[in-house]
Amino acid sequence: MAELDEIIHQPLRLRIMAALNALPDGQGMDFPRLKKLTGATDGNLGAHIETLSKAGYVGVDKAFVGKRPQTTVTATAAGRGAFARHVATLREIIAGAGG
Rank of each mutant, 00 (worst) to 15 (best):
K54N: 12
A95S: 15
A19M: 02
R85E: 13
R33G: 08
G96C: 05
V60Y: 03
D61I: 04
G28P: 05
A95N: 15
V65Q: 07
A78Y: 05
Q70S: 15
R80N: 06
L14S: 11
A47R: 13
V60G: 04
D61P: 01
A95D: 15
R68P: 00
A95F: 10
A75K: 07
V65A: 09
A19D: 14
K36F: 05
I7F: 00
E6A: 12
L52D: 06
G26T: 08
A63K: 15
A47C: 00
L34E: 06
V87C: 06
G59S: 13
Q10D: 11
L34A: 05
A88F: 02
A75E: 10
A18P: 04
I93H: 08
R68T: 12
A77N: 13
K62V: 10
G79N: 07
T74P: 05
T89G: 04
V65T: 10
I7N: 01
E50C: 01
A82M: 09
D42H: 12
A19Y: 03
P24R: 08
V87L: 11
F64S: 08
A84N: 11
L52Q: 03
F31P: 10
I7V: 15
R68D: 08
D30F: 03
R85D: 13
R13C: 02
L90Y: 00
K35W: 03
K35A: 04
P69E: 14
K36N: 10
K36C: 00
D5Q: 05
G56P: 04
T51Y: 12
F64C: 02
I93E: 08
A88T: 06
